[in-house]
Amino acid sequence: MSTPDTNRVALVTGGSGGIGRVVAERLAQDGFAVAVQYAGNRAKAEETVATITAAGGRALAVGGDVADEEAMSTAFEGVRSAFGGIDVVVNTAGIMILSAVESLDLSDLDRMHRTNIRGTFVVNQQAARTLRSGGAIINFSTSVVRTQLPTYSAYVASKAAVEAMTLVLARELRGRDITVNAVAPGPTATPLFLDGKDDATIDRFAKATPLERLGRPEDIAEAVAFLAGPARWINGQVLYANGGLA
């Protein structure tokens, strides 16, 4: 764990559950004041805030659709007003709908693209406009961009776009002392991954890594904490946090 820095502020989108919640709590342990963004479940976001504040940290919940530029502008301004600025933005918000290409409902494609591509773009745009020097933007991709499993085509297409904008934005922020990276988790034990999978499928994913287990949200949060804190010389990269999955 890095040395606590109580002057830094992080905004975590999708921070009300899954990996986002654990990331928010992990950054709070490092001394960040944390804004927990939620789209529809305010109660869960407030639970995350309560957990952080009970441990002596500073946190608040902010609502809004990540793909809505006005809502995100308001959210960013609210965080800046509450905490004095923003140093780190972690964009974990995303949705995953699996289907073969031939049978995918195109409305599901549009939903994923709205949240995963447009949402990431809107959040990155706000971050690029507001982050303080020394800051970090951390987006979320997926290891399936590399493993290319059947039924993941539409989801992977959206996350490949996230990787592309991450690498370009890192270069656009030249001279600002702001790093831009993406984390690409492998199979991780969250509702997003586990829902709809039987035990045999889950076991097969677990055995696919040399470590022979699924990732835990805490594993992914450690990678985020690294990029948000001490990893100042890592920039414009995709970090595959997947236990050695090929």
Results as ranks from 00 to 15, higher is better:
153 S>D: 10
176 R>V: 12
149 L>H: 14
143 S>P: 14
172 E>L: 02
185 P>G: 04
178 I>C: 09
185 P>M: 04
148 Q>Y: 00
180 V>F: 07
161 A>H: 07
184 A>T: 13
168 V>Y: 14
174 R>E: 10
166 T>A: 03
177 D>K: 12
141 S>G: 12
151 T>F: 12
159 K>C: 03
173 L>Q: 05
158 S>W: 01
139 N>H: 06
181 N>S: 14
150 P>E: 15
184 A>D: 13
170 A>W: 13
153 S>H: 10
173 L>R: 10
138 I>W: 10
172 E>D: 09
140 F>C: 00
150 P>R: 15
165 M>T: 06
139 N>P: 08
187 P>C: 04
142 T>E: 01
170 A>Y: 13
154 A>T: 03
165 M>P: 00
140 F>Q: 00
187 P>H: 06
142 T>R: 02
143 S>N: 15
147 T>P: 01
170 A>D: 15
143 S>D: 15
140 F>G: 00
141 S>Q: 06
141 S>D: 05
155 Y>H: 04
159 K>W: 07
178 I>K: 10
147 T>H: 01
163 E>K: 04
182 A>V: 11
140 F>V: 00
183 V>E: 12
165 M>N: 00
149 L>I: 07
144 V>L: 11
178 I>T: 13
146 R>I: 08
143 S>H: 15
171 R>H: 03
149 L>G: 10
159 K>I: 02
175 G>F: 04
144 V>I: 10
169 L>V: 12
173 L>D: 07
168 V>E: 14
153 S>P: 07
180 V>R: 07
187 P>V: 03
184 A>W: 15
167 L>G: 03
174 R>C: 04
182 A>P: 12
159 K>V: 02
186 G>M: 11
158 S>I: 01
180 V>S: 09
145 V>A: 11
142 T>P: 05
157 A>G: 09
